[in-house]
Write a protein that binds this DNA or RNA. Structure first.
Length: 598
RNA sequence: GCCUCGGUAGCUCAGUUGGAUAGAGCAACUGCCUUCUAAGCAGUAGGUCAUGGGUUCGAAUCCCGUCCGGGGUACCA
């Protein structure tokens, strides 16, 4: 039984016995003892004073005496003001670490039958431009939260809804027709998504110029934006696409194909993947049908111009457009269609949308609309809302060229990692291929950890001027700690002094750091749970950092292989090996690989 | 205007859901490689937790007001 549970029930028994008082479980507040005090677990006794009718110190002492007597694991206690610090027997932590080591999947649920199914939607790019830094945060969060849900006993289906149709892609198509010079990825060597992205910028350049011209001859901004020839032509392309014009559809397929080839490369480099991909072009009509059904059933209403709306004023919200006056669908329409298709195809218990917080209102409305349409699962949708990535200059804008391109960023990071490693000369013994693989691992580790260590809900700042760090609270720091541990274990095996798990025993005395490490290891399963219920990879990231930091301190002043006292040496090897294992599985939940050498 | 999220060290971020003297990393300065990897370790310095009130044994954390910033409120997605 876990020590916290033991103590909790011990405290409840003590209160009953001493003060004839039965508290709620949540009144028993246990926390880890602060480092400046002696002890492992601390009980806050303030809430009990009303019933004990004694001073905090006396109350704590009485409870302490009771626990010391009734729970074997409680070795001793001390009282500071209203805090009862309990010292736990080293044997308890030792046995926890030993079983952590033996447990193949310590802290991680194994796939089994009857798991609930969670579908996680993430990435969801438009097909008119390459992925940028904002997408990176989305992809890393989506991937990581999927791994964390798996670790928390969910079956997970990772999904991606590709926004492959609409005015945005028509703009790139038009630009290709008019100014594209028949360029293709093949004849230029350009990555497909980048080529299409350039065309999108090209369109915008002409469009802006036309607007300026029109304003000069007296039109308002709004009129000019509406009447510029480029946008008119793009709209014409969209109409042709919707009516199935073969030539337009062909161009659309070709250009989207280029983009997908580019995306695949970026996704692979990032190390993210999907179990099921939906395309907006295949779901928007389903959404439209649902809206029309809702209209027929009187759930929605139609204005004189033909547009369809939902009245959400009874929910404290506004009126929301669902179909334009020309009958075409909007963002919301498509999401309704996509949701319906997904729930038809899978037995989804939990649907999670990894989408930026600028869409908070959208998902609030989506849940209500699905509910109104009679889908029982509508209200249960989870919007995993995360903050924006900001640059020192403010928000990123694709059209204004202030975006940090995903491919460029990753490439740059690998370059820095390579230079740094070569300077340190650490990987000289590896083959070129192995070394190159390690550079990538480190570069991606730095990038991913950088993005995931901050609370997903908060906006974060990325400064392209300062490259992402490789020292301190970073991915490489944790990777390095893992490599160090592996190195020690390799040498132990070379010297034939590996520990045998069935023979390791607790030495007479263990140091403060050794105990701290054992306690930290024991926390891991709880951390995995917490990150699952809070949808926060950051909790895991910060735990891994603390663990690695503590290991490095331990490593610095405790000889491991050179320790003469065998029980002591073996327990140090056990602790090291277990820390290595926990780091590896923790980082895996973040989608970060750890090298054996670096 | 209305809705919503945020403001913690020079910078980037933690802070165990109300507990003890608010913590890391970066940047600056000092030490430590003949001993298991120095991408490391140890130390110095850096704070009116935006601000004013309130709630109580106890507030960075909860409530109200104010200031500053982000996002939303589109027949864009």
């Amino acid at each position: 039984m876990k020590i916290e549970k033991l103590i909790q029930s011990g405290v409840i028994a003590a209160l009953k016995r001493l003060y004839d008082f039965e508290p709620d479980d949540n009144l028993v507040q246990l926390q880890n003892t602060r480092k400046d005090f002696i002890g492992d677990i601390t009980l806050v006794v303030f809430p009990f004073l009303k019933h004990s009718k004694k001073r905090p110190e006396d109350t704590a002492t009485e409870i302490g005496k009771y626990l010391e007597k009734s729970i074997d694991e409680v070795k001793s206690f001390n009282v500071v003001k209203g805090f009862l610090n309990l010292e736990i027997d080293d044997n308890y932590w030792f046995s926890e670490v030993l079983s952590a080591w033996k447990d193949e999947s310590f802290g991680i649920a194994k796939p089994s039958e009857n798991q609930e199914l969670a579908m996680v939607e993430y990435s969801s790019p438009n097909t008119n431009k390459p992925l940028h830094l904002g997408h990176i945060r989305n992809n890393l969060l989506g991937y990581s939260i999927s791994e964390i849900l798996k670790a928390n006993n969910f079956q997970v289906v990772k999904t991606n809804i590709v926004n492959d149709r609409g005015i945005h892609i028509c703009k790139s198509m038009l630009a290709w027709q008019k100014w594209g010079n028949k360029e293709t990825p093949e004849n230029t060597g350009k990555k497909g998504d980048h080529l299409v992205g350039e065309l999108y910028v090209e369109f915008d350049k002409h469009y802006k110029a036309e607007i300026a011209e029109l304003i000069k001859i007296g039109l308002t901004q709004k009129e000019a934006e509406d009447q510029a020839p480029s946008i008119q032509e793009a709209r014409e392309l969209l109409r042709k696409w919707e009516s199935g014009d073969p030539e337009v559809v062909e161009l659309w397929k070709t250009m989207n194909g280029w983009v997908y080839e580019g995306f695949d490369i970026t996704y692979e480099k990032l190390g993210v993947d999907f179990d099921k991909i939906y395309y907006e072009s295949e779901t928007y009509l389903v959404g439209k049908e649902e809206i029309l059904r809702g209209l027929k059933e009187g759930i929605f209403y139609q204005k004189e111009d033909g547009s369809v709306w939902a009245d959400l004023t009874s929910e404290g919200l506004d009126h929301k457009l669902l179909l334009r006056s020309d009958g075409t669908s909007v963002y919301m329409t498509q999401d309704i269609g996509t949701a319906k298709m997904r729930f038809n195809e899978y037995k989804i218990d939990k649907m999670i949308y990894v989408v930026g917080n600028e869409q908070n209102y959208h998902f609030q409305v989506l849940a209500i609309l699905l509910d109104k349409l009679g889908f029982a699962w509508g209200k249960g949708l989870q919007h995993f809302s995360y903050g924006m990535v900001e640059l020192p200059s403010g928000k990123m804008k694709s059209r204004e060229g202030t975006v940090v391109d995903a491919d460029d960023l990753m490439e740059g990071m690998v370059k820095v990692a390579r230079e740094m490693a070569q300077e340190l000369g650490k990987l000289d013994s590896l083959s070129n291929e192995e070394a190159e693989k390690t550079y990538e691992m480190i570069a991606l580790g730095a990038l991913k950890y950088f993005m995931l260590k901050v609370d997903p809900k908060k906006n974060m700042l990325f400064n392209p001027e300062e490259s992402i760090d490789f020292n301190g609270n970073t991915g490489p720091f944790i990777q390095y700690t893992h490599a160090r541990i592996k190195s020690v274990l390799r040498k132990a095996s070379e010297k034939n002094i590996e520990f045998k798990e069935e023979l390791v025993t607790l030495p007479e005395e263990i140091s403060f750091k050794e105990k701290e490490l054992m306690k930290r290891i024991t926390l891991f399963p709880e951390i995995v749970k917490e990150s699952g219920t809070n949808y926060s990879p950051a909790i895991i990231a910060n735990y891994c950092f603390e663990l690695a930091k503590e290991f490095n301190q331990f490593y610095h002043d405790h000889p491991i292989l050179a320790e003469n006292n065998e029980p002591r040496r073996d327990v140090r090897l056990l602790i090291s090996a277990t820390v290595g294992k926990v780091i590896k599985s923790g980082m895996k939940l973040l989608g970060i690989e750890v090298p054996d050498r670096m």
